[in-house]
Amino acid sequence: MGAHISIPMYERTVGQRLAFEGERCTDCGTVAFPPKGACPDCRNDEFETVDLSGTGTVYSHTVLSPGGAPPEFAGQARAEGRYVAAIVELDEGPRITAQLTDIDPETVEIGMPVSGRIRRIYEEEGVVRYGFKFGPADD
């Protein structure tokens, strides 16, 4: 059994997961990602949608050992071993948690530039859930 994210729940976030859709506070201009119910800075509740670049830097990270992987990621861990989960600070300011991919875990460092890419996140109820991971930034 894995974390249950219903299909509708996932669907509500596809803009974030596939296209880095964030929101900008119409009052103070603060960018929020993932979208919030109120501006993280001024608590205004009106926003405009903004497409974020999907690029940023590693704020911190961990390398997860396969044995402890949550059930829905056990297959990935069995197939490829240790994997990296990181908090990435996006160029527009917000931070987000995601896996790093296409990278040797030993080479990841705080401050390293990364860029988003679409990958299979996991599968539940027979439906593939796609979303972003980050990898080394393009040159």
């Binding site: 297959g75 990935q76 197939a79 490829e80 896996q99 991919t101 296409d102 890419r117 679409i118 990958r119 299979r120 996140i121 593939v128 796609y130 991971k133």
Partner: peptide, 13 residues
């Protein structure tokens, strides 16, 4: 393909 890659992710890239 890696575990998290398939025809859809390659198409996107």
């Amino acid at each position: 393909p890696a575990y998290d890659e398939d025809a859809m992710t390659l198409a996107t890239a």
